[in-house]
Every structure is written in C-alpha cells, then in structure tokens.
Simulated assay, not measured.
Amino acid sequence: MDTENRTETLEAQVKAFFDSAPPLHNSHEITQKLNQFIQRNSSSSENGEARRIVCVTSGGTTAPLEQRCVRYVDNFSSGHRGATSTEYFLKAGYAVIFLYRRGSFQPFCRSLPEDPLLECFEPTNDLNIQVRKDYSKAVKSAIVDHHIAVAGGHLLKLPFSTIFEYLQMLQIIGTSTRCIGPRAMFYLAAAVSDYYVPWKDMVEHKIQSGSHLLDVKLVQVPKMLSVLRKDWAPLAFCVSFKVLMVFVRH
C-alpha cells in the first residue's frame, strides 16, 4: 500500500510540474531533429550494427523566480564532465545527444583557453584575422573533431537554461529513444535543480527590492529518474551522479 501511495504521489507531482511548466517554444523542431538523428544512427554502421545512442546531459539548470526572468536560483556546473564524456562516447562509436546548459563547457574545447574567440585569434590587418600560433594546433583539432562529429550525423546538440526546459527536453528525448530499446543510454551529468517555483505562482516582472526580506516558496522538483526508467525509456541504460562533498579539517 505504501508503494502504491508513493507511486500515486510521484505521478501527481510529475503531472503538476509539467502542467505548470511554460511550453517549449520549439518542441516540434526538437522532436523532428531527434527523430531524424535516431533514424540516421539506427541504420547499420561500418561494422554492420546500428550505433548505440547516448543522451549526455551537462551543465546546471536554473529555477526562475519571475516569469520574465531577472532573478533565478542556479545549480552551478561547468559542464566539464558532460562535455569530456561526450568526446569519449564519440570515440567509442556512440552517437551522442548532447543536452547542455547554454554557456557551459563544450566538447573538444579542453585545450582552448577560457575565452577562445578573443584569445586564440589576432588581427592581421583591418579586414582579416588569423589563429595565433600558440593555439593553432588546438583550434584546428577542436574544429576538425567537432565538424566530423556534427557533419557525420553523430552529434546532436540541444541547449537548455531552465529546469522547465531541461525536463521537458529530457522527456522528449526519452520518449523518442524508446523505439530503439536497449541501444539507448542516458548519462545524466547535469546538475539539476532540487526546488523550483511553479510558473503560476511567479510574479510576471522583476521582484521589487523595496523590502528587507524576500519570502519565496519553493516546491520540490519530482524525482524524474524513476519516471525516465519506468515510463519514458524503460529499456535504456541509465547512469546518474551524486554530488560529492569533500570536507577537509585543518
């Protein structure tokens, strides 16, 4: 009975979350890209077998405090683990759906400086620029590897910012990959918000700063991993991570 009650409670929480979420503006486009990507990588590869497809999530989600968002609660993650893992999955022959936070670390950029556009290039005259000699090898490698993955149809990049975008897109990816069964994998390296403000409870515009105290009511984000494994992609292999806190005593 307790298990049934917990299941019903989770289902109600999941329904409440998606009912409250602002709809994705480009959900049709995302679904179309996913279907094309899955179909392309479901045909036989060089070894005569269809590629395995992994969804790598990367970076952290935000929980907006206003509908026209100015303030938000941010789950920080550089995205280094997800981006680096994407490179290794591609090298291992996987096709990768890279679901990443806008502005987070990108695949093939480990050898580049923090601001590659401004640091890796230099002007040669008033009209042209060139790669600085110190970075020429790293820039060429990053561009070539990225081009091969994307042009070859083995890397699909989908950006998100908010917890609403992330979970709606994860749901679309899960249901879209259900058709390939155990050839699908989810490598969940994103730092996902634990709490959020339901859309209907948010103020529309910027919260005014006249008061000394700000009282915000946050609701727990439903645990979607079990929903992913049970409903969205029941045959997929799932890998998730817990935040490791290390305390050092002096």
Rank of each mutant, 00 (worst) to 15 (best):
residue 117 L to G: 05
residue 249 R to L: 03
residue 2 D to W: 04
residue 64 P to R: 03
residue 183 R to H: 08
residue 21 A to W: 06
residue 78 S to N: 05
residue 222 P to T: 06
residue 193 S to N: 14
residue 247 F to D: 02
residue 31 T to S: 15
residue 186 F to V: 07
residue 221 V to E: 08
residue 106 Q to R: 10
residue 140 K to V: 11
residue 162 T to V: 08
residue 62 T to Q: 09
residue 153 G to K: 13
residue 22 P to L: 15
residue 38 I to Q: 03
residue 241 F to M: 09
residue 224 M to L: 15
residue 11 E to I: 03
residue 108 F to I: 09
residue 100 Y to A: 00
residue 116 P to L: 03
residue 135 Y to D: 04
residue 248 V to R: 06
residue 99 L to A: 00
residue 7 T to K: 15
residue 223 K to T: 01
residue 237 F to D: 07
residue 44 S to E: 07
residue 48 G to N: 06
residue 172 I to Q: 12
residue 112 L to M: 12
residue 210 G to K: 03
residue 47 N to C: 11
residue 89 F to R: 06
residue 166 Y to P: 06
residue 235 L to E: 10
residue 55 C to F: 13
residue 243 V to Q: 10
residue 166 Y to H: 13
residue 215 D to I: 11
residue 86 T to Q: 11
residue 135 Y to N: 05
residue 151 A to N: 14
residue 211 S to M: 10
residue 4 E to R: 09
residue 49 E to I: 04
residue 34 L to D: 02
residue 117 L to M: 14
residue 5 N to H: 10
residue 21 A to V: 05
residue 6 R to P: 01
residue 120 C to I: 11
residue 218 L to T: 07
residue 167 L to Y: 13
residue 83 A to M: 02
residue 81 R to L: 07
residue 97 I to R: 02
residue 140 K to A: 15
residue 150 V to Y: 09
residue 21 A to G: 04
residue 8 E to N: 10
residue 13 Q to K: 15
residue 141 S to H: 10
residue 148 I to H: 14
residue 168 Q to D: 04
residue 41 N to M: 03
residue 107 P to H: 10
residue 215 D to C: 08
residue 144 V to W: 02
residue 204 E to M: 00
residue 19 D to K: 11
residue 228 L to Y: 03
residue 1 M to G: 11
residue 164 F to S: 00
residue 50 A to T: 07
residue 101 R to N: 02
residue 60 G to A: 01
residue 176 S to L: 04
residue 126 D to A: 14
residue 112 L to K: 09
residue 249 R to H: 03
residue 248 V to N: 11
residue 227 V to E: 04
residue 109 C to W: 09
residue 217 K to G: 03
residue 150 V to F: 08
residue 63 A to K: 04
residue 97 I to T: 06
residue 193 S to V: 01
residue 221 V to W: 12
residue 184 A to R: 12
residue 208 Q to R: 03
residue 10 L to N: 02
residue 139 V to A: 07
residue 36 Q to A: 12
residue 221 V to S: 11
residue 59 G to C: 05
residue 97 I to Q: 01
residue 115 D to H: 08
residue 219 V to K: 13
residue 144 V to L: 09
residue 5 N to S: 13
residue 8 E to S: 10
